[in-house]
């Protein structure tokens, strides 16, 4: 009996699966539910009102998102006659899956037994996987056969070209400092107070704004802007599929936040992974997730204080400010590597 139980536990805790399902999907989903609630409550706080409340007065309306989820789940899913059915349904699914896949390349600990897929190019692999999901947002806009959706998709396409370069360059500057593309090496190099946010603030700023750009966060909520293109690519989606789309956007932001936490905020530092599953795997991943959640909270606070830029202005910012900033960050990384700060 105990053998079977052990086997089950072993399968569940098999790092790639554990990483994908628990660290990539379940916990981030919980975080997303919390973040959405937090976003609405902070906005309400800034705006001198209450925000969601009566659904569960005891926990300040914390169940609001569950109620919304229940409604979305059991609402009619309308598939208009004019859409291209297969991509219309598959695109949001693919976007959802692709936005959590990068997590299999991100190590949450320095213990080799708990690496998901051990490779020395994890930084590059995770970055490459992260940049895939926007393609499916364009696809879903295209498949919707709606003018607003097509415009939304095109805006997304413009933004991809703008932010990918910036984000990738900014993240790669960490590789320049450490001389390694292995995320474990990068985290190890940040021991003590040598977090890359301090060593290389330029790259961090570029990465931070790049994430805002890529996940349609304010002030760059352009592709899904309500007031010109009515939620952009998602105009025609209803019910659960729409919920999936929204979830995918937030999950993507969560994974990006995890990346920033690992690359710039010292990963599991200052904690040093110990022996065993709990001390060696669970605690470091919790440290990373907490850092990522704090980042998410900062992102969502922007909604309350900023409007949105125009598309051409956002592209201006990306190409004229962020791109040089990212290049400078990369150069700074090389300089630090040359000086041997690490």
């Amino acid at each position: 009996m105990s053998g079977i139980l052990d086997a089950i536990i072993k399968i569940i805790t098999w790092p790639p699966l554990w990483q994908l399902v628990v660290l990539g999907l379940l916990i981030p989903l919980g975080v997303v539910v919390f973040i959405l609630w937090f976003e609405r409550k902070t906005a309400a706080r800034v705006q001198r009102r209450i925000g969601p409340y009566h659904v569960s007065p005891k926990i300040a309306g914390g169940l609001q998102l569950i109620a919304d989820l229940m409604r979305y789940m059991f609402q009619e899913v309308i598939i208009p006659k004019t859409v291209d059915k297969f991509p219309f349904i598959v695109a949001p699914l693919a976007a959802l899956i692709l936005s959590i896949v990068p997590v299999v390349a991100i190590p949450f600990t320095s213990i080799e037994a708990y690496f998901p897929i051990d490779m020395s190019y994890s930084l590059i692999i995770s970055l490459a996987l992260l940049t895939l999901s926007p393609l499916f947002i364009i696809l879903s806009g295209w498949a919707s056969n709606n003018k607003f959706s097509v415009i939304g998709g095109m805006r997304e396409a413009y933004l991809i070209t703008a932010y990918e370069l910036v984000a990738v360059l900014a993240f790669l500057s960490a590789g320049a400092i450490t001389g390694s593309f292995n995320l474990v090496d990068i985290v190890e190099a940040q021991s003590g107070v040598k977090w890359f946010i301090i060593l290389n603030p330029l790259a961090f700023a570029a990465a931070f704004i790049g994430v805002l750009l890529s996940t349609s966060g304010f002030p760059f909520e352009i592709a899904e802007s309500e007031h010109e293109v009515v939620a952009g690519a998602f105009t025609e989606y209803s019910g659960l599929v729409y919920g999936m789309n929204m979830g995918a956007a937030y999950l993507k932001r969560m994974i990006f936040s995890i990346m920033i936490a690992v690359v710039f905020l010292g990963g599991w530092q200052p904690y040093t992974p110990g022996e065993g599953f709990i001390a060696g795997y669970l605690v470091p991943s919790i440290v990373i997730l907490i850092k990522a959640t704090v980042l998410m909270m900062i992102f969502s606070f922007f909604r309350a204080v900023y409007g949105r830029y125009r598309l051409d202005q956002a592209l201006d910012i990306a190409w004229k400010i962020l791109f040089p900033l990212a290049v400078l960050g990369f150069g700074l990384g090389l300089l630090e590597a040359y000086l041997g700060i690490i």
């Binding site: 009102r49 409340y53 309306g61 309308i78």
Partner: peptide, 22 residues
């Protein structure tokens, strides 16, 4: 939906497109 009366506390949130509302 202004701060004074804030109907969002009842869970109602004015939304953009017809497909996502009820």
């Amino acid at each position: 939906w202004s701060p004074r009366y804030d109907n969002e506390q009842h869970g109602a949130l004015p939304w953009i497109g017809p497909r996502q509302t009820n």
